[in-house]
Amino acid sequence: MPILTVNKLTKSFGGLMAVSNVSMELKKGELVGLIGPNGAGKTTVFNLLTGIYQPTSGTVTLHRDKKEEQLQGLKPYTICKKGIARTFQNIRLFKDLTVLDNVRIAMNKNVKYGLFSTFFHTRSYSDEEKEMLDKCMQLLKILKLDHKKDELAKNLPYGEQRHLEILRALATNPCILLLDEPAAGMNPAETAQLTEMIGWIRENFDLTILLIEHDMSLVMKICERIYVLDYGMVIAEGTPSEIKSNKRVIEAYLGEEMGNA
């Protein structure tokens, strides 16, 4: 059963086709990889799915609660409310806020108390705030960040910043999670830990995950299916073993290495 259908998604910046005619499908509960050489358009796909960029053409459809909803043209916060959360390639935490606040802000969309309660701190304010705090602490405990709840996000070590960003995305209570290079800059031990964590949250949060990653061993190990982008186009799709032996994929990556050399 599909949960997200992407149909002929296209984005051009001036003359540059960053994403062209990309069609994808995510099934509920899947963990799908999105790979491709540098500049292939992977992050742009995420930006299109989350409404940060508007597509030049094409559609994105979310299937949830037996309904179909078109997502293209919606604002990022609306898309988030519909259940798609993400992390950023170049960590975008609220650096000068505490760990706790980073997570709490992601829960703002569920807050029900209104302006009056806000100004006068009524009963419903304190009840909801307390509930929110409890939920945050539960989440923080999972990633063992609870004892650091009052530290500023910018003071966390790099690996924990990446974790916190995932946690912040989880706090929006998504059904689909988009991870943009979560292992970038991590050492093998940290990467292994992260791999385990991604699997764990998928099970426990009932998530569908789309993962951009350059670390091939990670991708091949945990993804069930993989899409390969090159020059904005999907050049291959299949299981890790299919992708490994796909000629076009090998060419695309070899091309990159030759280019770099």
Partner: peptide, 17 residues
């Protein structure tokens, strides 16, 4: 806090709902 998050990073804050 939502207001403060806009000051910190408007794009991230929109992406968090």
């Amino acid at each position: 806090r939502a207001c403060i998050s806009i000051r910190e990073d408007e794009i991230a804050s929109e992406a968090m709902g």
